[in-house]
Design a binder for these strands. Structure first.
Length: 735
DNA sequence: CAGCTATTCGTTTTT
DNA sequence: CGAATAGCTG
């Protein structure tokens, strides 16, 4: 305990770090793995370690990189570090997501992987659109399957050749073919998808010794949060950055690994021990969050899983009350019951709304809950679900920005050219598209060649107007044609992953002839450009002309919010339009309105709840088929392999349940429904096996209509009396 | 070409 | 039940 003080006199490791935490913080002799159980002070260890490196060990901000998975986690970590260290010392410190680091890396090294530095970042929607075109089908299930397959291959560092080799079924073989042309299409668009942001840096670092050396010099100490969620790609990236000295700390919990479906492999934990024999392992088992009854249930449940490193959480926070299990008739009754019980509990416990969370498996479940909460005038926020940047109005605006920055970005071109409507329609786009693929240029370049593209003469004017608009903004954004960025990618300098490109999407020829007015302009600051752009495309009028006033208002509000956010970001970080646009494609959701944290009940998926904590947690829909979620795997021909796979998935579901349980600090309430409304009809349900696995001793964990739960009507009447009238201004607070 | 209506369809989880 | 798409009309 006192060791830290002895070794580093004068350093004040806070007294509230326990012995294990201290060891994790001060161990610097080599690679270090911290197995941190839920609520064991994992974030504290990382932030304290960063502070320790900077304040006591002579590291400078620029030497240290800390990686997380979500922007939210990164932001929180950054804030906590800022509170610990002097701003000057922390100068240049990197705290960010894998994806944002990958973006920064790619921007600097783009040419090494065959991209110009102003590449676009495709969102999942655009990526799916490309796959749809390549596959020439509208079968949604098939499309998703292919997209998923490609993503998994990328995350596992399997290239199209490898995929073709591994493909076992005809449909996998087809997916592998699509994978190849998808990659080629992206190159032609000068665009990357989310997976590429990590995959391209990882492959480049392993193949190019110069680049590797350069980055290893930059990164002197590396910290990884949520290590159990890394995939092979991220693992390689991490190892490459850490280099020979392998100075890093990885923090994770195998019991909370819930992202296998997107390529994360818990095996990375064992792999770390194998690849780094000198690995120091520190376990954190003291839980500072939950009462003992909750931990006992969590421990009992998770003990059904096989895991490499056994852990047993304990706490000194007292027994707490029993875990409540409530059967319900259907999902509507469940939602109403939760709303009522939260209302009552807030009153009885003198708690705040934000002490409560309702957790569920799938986003759709939020709908009923929202309804029920609204009915009782309970303020709430929903996390997960459709993100801000998925909203159509936001994507519209971003399409313009993307096109201005990178006019090879055909998806952005299509969206921008057709929204708002400006006389460019299906037929015109089709003609342009044909011409573009014939001559190997972008749609944007084809536009200036429209006379040759068999576009009807009367369409030329709107096309020309649109083209000039974009050119104008390109000039003002500082894109200088003929400058360093303008030349196309040298053929033959393509990375192996995309070099065998088939189809129409081979590298395109150098872009169109620069226009005179473009060069004359001076580069203008991003905020002014943004305002001008919004005015020039008449977006506000478009919204109000084409939609209900109510809806238009909401959307316009979102647009304004986006603009504010963009402008603020541009000023704060002194970004030009190009940098801003690339950042925006990633930078996340809940950055705004974090100043005011409203007092509201939190609705969240289990996945999105990881890392959060609440005094009182209501976990709904704990049913077979929903919480151990089972898809369509009835047909199990080869029982061996299928059964193995199923067991794996059940284990992941169990971890998900475990994550949900361990969010609760003081009370935990589970419920399930006998029947649940799905799409058209009601489906009968049974209680989840997980409830039995929690070893809850007393009271009925299953079976009869509960007598414990007062009938909703009666409860509601009681409540109305208690609450008298709902306080005004208590409307649902939505994000 | 654009906006409207009819009809189909579906179910995880997210950077 | 609600969203996304296809097909039809002005």
């Amino acid at each position: 305990m006192a060791m830290a003080f002895d070794l580093h006199p004068g350093y004040t490791v806070p007294a509230d770090l326990n012995a294990c935490q201290r060891e994790a913080v001060t161990y610097l002799d080599g690679p270090c793995l911290v197995l941190a159980g839920a609520g064991s002070g994992k974030t504290r260890v990382i932030t304290q370690k960063i502070a320790y490196l900077l304040r006591e060990c002579g590291y400078r901000g620029g030497d240290v990189v800390a990686l997380t998975f979500t922007n939210k986690a990164a932001r929180e970590m950054r804030e906590r570090v800022d509170r610990l260290v002097d701003g000057r010392i922390g100068q240049g410190l990197t705290v960010g997501t894998f994806h944002s680091l990958g973006l920064r890396f790619l921007r600097e090294e783009a040419r090494h992987v065959g991209f110009k530095s102003q590449f676009s970042i495709l969102d999942a929607h655009d990526a799916l659109g490309i796959i749809q075109e390549l596959l020439a089908t509208t079968d949604k299930a098939r499309l998703r399957a292919v997209q998923q397959a490609i993503s998994l291959w990328k995350n596992a560092l399997v290239d199209p050749d490898g995929a073709a080799r591994v493909a076992a079924t005809p449909s996998e073989a087809e997916a592998a073919r699509i994978y190849r042309s998808y990659g080629a299409t992206l190159t032609a668009y000068q665009a990357v998808d989310f997976d590429d942001l990590i995959r391209l840096p990882a492959t480049l670092l392993s193949e190019n010794a110069d680049v590797r050396a350069r980055w290893q010099r930059r990164v002197k100490y590396l910290l990884i949060d949520e290590y159990q969620d890394t995939n092979l790609c991220q693992y390689r990236l991490m190892c490459s950055l850490a280099g020979m000295r392998s100075l890093f700390t990885a923090v994770g919990d195998d019991d909370q690994a819930i992202y296998a479906w997107r390529g994360a492999t818990v095996e990375n934990l064992a792999k770390l021990a194998a690849d780094y024999p000198a690995l120091k392992i520190v376990k954190l088992e003291q839980n500072y969050r939950s009462v003992q009854r909750i931990l006992a249930a969590a421990n009992c449940l998770i003990s059904r899983n096989s895991n490499v490193f056994g852990k047993k959480l304990w706490s000194t926070l007292g027994q707490g009350e029993p875990v409540e299990v409530v059967p319900m008739d259907d999902d509507i009754a469940e939602a109403e019951s939760v709303a009522i019980r939260i209302s009552a509990a807030r009153f009885e416990r003198r708690a705040q709304w934000k002490d409560f969370a309702v957790l569920y498996r799938g986003n759709q479940q939020a709908r009923v809950l929202e309804q029920a909460l609204r009915n009782l005038r309970i303020p709430y926020t929903v996390s997960g679900g459709q993100s801000f940047f998925e909203k159509p109005e936001i994507r519209d605006i971003l399409a313009y920005l993307r096109l201005i920055v990178n006019d090879d970005d055909d998806p952005a071109f299509i969206r921008a050219a057709t929204t708002p409507r400006r006389g460019i329609g299906q037929a015109t786009l089709q003609a342009l598209g044909q011409w573009a693929s014939r001559t190997h240029v972008s749609l944007f370049a084809a536009l200036f060649d429209a006379e040759n593209a068999q576009v009807p003469a009367r369409q030329l004017a709107p096309l020309r107007a649109f083209g000039d608009l974009i050119l104008d903004f390109q000039g003002r954004a500082g894109r200088a044609p003929g400058g360093p960025m303008a030349a196309g990618v040298p053929a033959g300098d393509l990375p192996s992953a995309v070099s065998g490109s088939a189809g129409r999407a081979v590298p395109r020829q150098a872009p169109r002839q620069p226009l005179a007015n473009q060069q004359a302009r001076a580069k203008q600051p991003a905020p002014a450009l943004l305002d001008d752009l919004l005015g020039a495309i008449g977006y506000e009028r478009y919204l109000f002309d084409s939609l209900d006033e109510r809806i238009a208002r909401g959307r316009w509000q979102n647009v304004l919010e986006l603009m504010d956010w963009l402008k603020r970001k541009a000023r704060e970080d002194n970004l030009d339009l190009i940098e801003l646009t690339q950042h925006v494609a990633l930078v996340a959701l809940l950055q705004r309105n974090d100043e005011e944290e409203p007092d509201a009940v939190k609705l969240s998926t289990l996945h999105a709840s990881k890392g959060l904590e609440f005094a009182h947690v209501y976990l709904v829909g704990v049913e077979e088929g929903l919480l151990p979620h089972t898809g369509r795997d009835e047909q199990d021909g080869d029982s061996d392999r299928a059964a193995e796979l199923l067991a794996q998935r059940i284990q992941e579901e169990r971890r998900l349940m475990y994550v949900g349980i361990t969010r609760a600090k003081r009370s935990l309430h589970l419920s399930w429904c006998r029947k649940r409304r799905r799409a058209r009809d009601d489906v009968a349900r049974e209680v989840s096996r997980f409830i039995g696995e929690m070893g809850l001793a007393e009271s009925g964990a299953s079976g009869e209509p509960d007598s414990a739960a007062v009938s909703p009507g009666e409860r509601l009447r009681m409540l109305r009396q208690l609450l008298d009238a709902p306080p005004p201004g208590n409307a649902p607070a939505r994000k």
